[in-house]
Amino acid sequence: MWGFYFNELMNSLPFFLKGLWMTVAVSGLSLIAATIIGFVLGIMRAGQNKILRYGIGAWVDVTRGTPFLVQVFIIFFILPGVGIELEAFPAAVIALSNMGACFICEIVAGGILAVPQGQREAATASGLSAYQQMRSIVMPQAMPSIIPPLVGQYVLIIKDSSVVSAIGVVDVTRVGWLTVQRIPEGLMVFGLVGLLYFSICYPLILLSNYLERRMSVEKTRL
């Protein structure tokens, strides 16, 4: 029986690859958006404006303090109640981007605040504008402590994207659910699902480890 199901599963492989493509599309779009928004929020969160700082802090806390599945449901099922109708795909991308942006915001703000205050004072004293300071003095020193956890965050975004299968996005997790109804070998089916996630996450984990080592060398100079 096991051999038969295995053959069946291999026949469904194109379906799984389509699901994998959907996973890559949802998480890929989300991590690009999360990076851009996360950096903007992180820079403001580490800035002087108190309203922005606490406003963003509160939003980050709300996002980090609620389950991601609940956030997905709110965006997909509850927003239409106030007139904002979304397809499953954009709803998934918005939810994932928001969550990723909040975590990246904290990583970026932490990296910026770790740069000694004296660096900004020296730059201020020589007449550099706030933008010039951020670009030439602060960010280059913050990046070594931002990049390794940032790549780690990408791995989390890819894995958490499995949650969006709950609102009907046919990602690789959803394909697993659909297949297991036909091929009742749960271990085999979800073993394949897990393997597919692992195949895209593992290179990123290796990259993160490598960057961690390289950046710690970089930081000895700072």
């Binding site: 000694p116 004296g118 660096q119 020296a122 100079r221």
Partner: peptide, 12 residues
């Protein structure tokens, strides 16, 4: 020109 006690050179 302003000179600090702790130099504050840009390390990078």
């Amino acid at each position: 020109g302003f000179i600090f006690q702790s130099f504050n050179l840009y390390p990078h």
